Amino acid sequence: MTKAETTTAAPALRAHSPEVSAAKARKWGAFYYAEQVLRVMKGYGWTIVMYGVGQPVAYLFAMGVGLATLVDTNSTSAFGGVSYLVFIAPALLVSAAVMTAANEFTFPVMDGFKWRRVYYGPHASPLTPEQIALGQIIAVTVRLVLQSAIYFAVVALFGASPSPWGWASILVATVAGLSFGLPLMAYAGSIKEDKGQFAMVMRFIVMPLFLFSGTFFPLDTLPLAVRWIGWISPIWHGTELGRVLSYGYEEAPLLTIAHVVFLLALCAAGWVLTKRQFVKRMGG
């Protein structure tokens, strides 16, 4: 190496000391773990993209275009004066986010504690159980935002979101997904043995919520015997907010506020329970 090359060479990179690395992990550990989860998701990224595009296209064609031709021919008064496609689009957006959250906050959590025990490696570092849980939540939130954005883009191409505030339904769908997913994450963290609990959740909780939350028809058209399912459903609360934003659905302002409070309260309660469960399973 010549003298000129020696003087212009970049200084060698020096690794952080263990103390500095530990301090960074304690400060940014949740984001470090979120990065790891997102890198894992990248391995099935095309599945996420196809799910985000294929599902809305299939549903919108089947329900919003196919069935809508029959519904709109008879009457649109039952749907607030808008087409059936415009009516169901926000519901499908929210439902997709909730179903994704149901998947991401069940089996991966069980994997972290039981099957591959992927939580315990990071926990051997300065990362705390709370940071690991929060990192998982951040990563899933990123997926929900991206998926909902793709879904909304397809909805917009169909002309099913006439309001300029329709884009905000992306955030509503994300919050709705978290409001259902975080309590479910706490439950998943409490399971010691897989005995088909998640299959039961999907069949007897997620599916009834999807069907009886005013997704395909107004909630007040249902019998009182099943209408209560919608009242406690994050899908219904998210759907109603999405309709307000997507096409100016008219409802009492207090009811709109109640939707927001309900979803945020579920998120907060779910986070508290999840944090407690992760600390209990992994120790402080």
Rank of each mutant, 00 (worst) to 15 (best):
H123N: 12
F158I: 02
V118L: 13
G121E: 12
R143E: 10
V142A: 15
S161Q: 06
R143Q: 12
D111M: 09
Q136Y: 04
T128F: 02
Q131Y: 13
A153T: 14
A153M: 15
I150K: 09
V142S: 11
M110L: 14
S161T: 06
R116L: 11
G112A: 05
E130W: 09
V142L: 12
R117N: 07
V118Y: 10
G112D: 02
E130Q: 11
T141A: 05
M110V: 08
R116C: 08
A160R: 02
P129E: 13
A153I: 15
Q136H: 10
A124S: 15
Y120P: 10
S148C: 13
Y120C: 12
G135C: 01
T141D: 05
G121L: 15
S125A: 14
S125E: 10
F158A: 02
P122W: 00
G121C: 11
I150V: 15
V145P: 00
A149F: 02
I132S: 01
A139P: 08
W115T: 15
F152S: 07
G112P: 02
P126D: 09
A124P: 10
E130V: 12
T141F: 05
V142P: 05
W115V: 13
V145M: 08
A149R: 03
V142F: 12
H123A: 07
L127H: 02
Y151D: 04
L157A: 12
P122G: 02
S125R: 06
I137S: 04
I132T: 04
V155C: 09
A133V: 07
G112W: 03
S148H: 05
T141G: 06
I137L: 09
V145G: 06
P129T: 12
H123Q: 14
A149V: 04
L134C: 10
V145H: 05
L157S: 07
T128M: 03
A124Q: 14
P122E: 04
A156G: 05
K114N: 09
V140H: 00
M110K: 09
H123K: 08
K114A: 07
E130N: 13
G159S: 09
V118A: 15
F158V: 00
A124I: 08
P126L: 12
R116S: 12
G112C: 02
R117V: 11
W115K: 14
G112K: 01
R116A: 15
R117E: 10
V154R: 03
Q147E: 11
G135E: 00
